[in-house]
Computed example of a mutant assay.
Amino acid sequence: MSNVVTEKNIYSRSYIEEIREKVKPIVENVIKPNAGLGDKEGLFPRESLLALAKEGWNSVTIPEKWGGLDLGYVGLSVVAEEIGKVDASTGLVYAMHVGAAQTINLFGNDDQKARWLLPIREGAITTFAVSEKATGGHVWYNLSQAVQDGDEYILNLEKSFTTSGGQSDYYVVQTRTAGSTDPSEHSFFIVDGHQEGITAKPWKALGVRGNHSGPLKFENVRVHHRDLLQVASHDVINGTGAILGLNAVWLGVAQGALDAAIAHVTKTTHKDFNKNLADYQVIRQKLAEVKIQIAAVRTWQYDLARQYDELCKNNQSLLPLAGELTEHKVLATELADTAARVAMDVAGGYGYIEGTFERIYRDARGGIPMAPSNNLAREQIGKGLVGLPLELFEEGK
């Protein structure tokens, strides 16, 4: 994959389309055929991830020095969107993996990068372990706290909704800093996922059944000081662009729903009137409205990705884009839900039976409650509009 692109012009549509054409064979030949079975049996998409790793896509934002393709956030957006078109579960696993790996790329030292980033090309998978049941979607607030013991830290905690929980080779784990009483002080550890004391609970859900996003427990897990990341900000998920990758997945889900709907209405004919479903104006207009919304969200997706890449190029913080990214998250996830509902609607009874349409419909709901949930996101956005403080940190009484 060293010749993915001949010239990096992130403002060129041809650049984006070249990346898209390069990743499509894996998406169509490996990920898409496994999507239905993965949903039905709740299978983690290991085969798909290994195929992506072999071609370097799991290291899409990582510099070539550490085994990556160095295609930045534009590259991540293209790949995550293409995966989302055929399988939301694999897309979520992929986006969270790339986001966690990018955290090490941005904040890790050379020793950490050599030990944790290079194995990605051989199939190693990582993810974030951040949220906790007690504080829900307030992922910036952890009650858990590391305990320092000499050169090591001891972790006793449980994380909720950890994508790839029990499947990842290592985790980027967020806790309150050892010895601190300040909830804004966080530590981020790279934790080997194969050591004893890490237990994942089963994942059973309405949709995205293959992403294994269940509770993850750490009992007396020791982490050496050399695997403590030197992160300046508590807002790592926004500060590394992980949500940008997730948004691209939901954009892909919307496009996948539209593609499935178009394929159905153009091949289905009512023999009594000898009319194709696509001959009905009401159906065409429903599809057109989804297409218009997808075009708008996609334009915003790649504009944000380019801005992220520019900031990285200049070694600047990504946090200034966090507010806009939250706004985009709301729009992208709700577009996926809208597109899935329209697809089921125009497919009629065939949309309601078990299969592609109902799977997309179930999967598409998953983005709305994902942190920050859209209700919480709107509250954050609204407070900013009227000049009220976010009040992120307040000790419970």
Rank of each mutant, 00 (worst) to 15 (best):
232 A>C: 03
219 E>R: 10
375 N>L: 11
115 R>H: 14
283 I>Y: 06
333 T>V: 15
85 K>N: 07
387 G>T: 03
313 K>F: 04
44 F>N: 02
186 H>R: 14
246 L>V: 15
80 A>R: 00
72 G>C: 02
87 D>H: 06
380 Q>V: 13
215 P>C: 06
169 D>S: 12
237 I>Y: 01
396 G>K: 14
121 R>G: 15
65 K>Y: 12
240 T>W: 06
151 D>C: 02
361 Y>D: 12
389 P>S: 13
232 A>K: 14
252 G>E: 09
208 V>M: 12
193 G>L: 07
366 G>Q: 11
213 S>P: 00
229 L>Y: 02
297 V>C: 13
325 L>N: 15
114 A>I: 11
26 I>R: 04
231 V>R: 06
348 G>H: 10
160 S>A: 14
44 F>R: 03
191 V>R: 11
360 I>D: 04
308 Y>Q: 08
384 G>Y: 11
302 Y>M: 05
396 G>R: 13
382 G>M: 06
167 Q>Y: 14
115 R>M: 12
134 A>Q: 11
307 Q>S: 12
345 D>F: 13
166 G>C: 10
271 K>I: 14
357 F>W: 09
381 I>D: 08
250 W>M: 15
174 Q>Y: 05
258 L>A: 12
174 Q>P: 01
255 Q>G: 11
389 P>A: 10
216 L>P: 01
221 V>E: 09
222 R>C: 05
204 K>P: 00
163 T>L: 02
183 P>L: 15
8 K>A: 12
396 G>E: 14
23 V>H: 05
78 V>Y: 05
100 A>Q: 03
240 T>A: 11
129 A>H: 09
55 E>R: 14
171 Y>H: 12
397 K>A: 12
283 I>N: 06
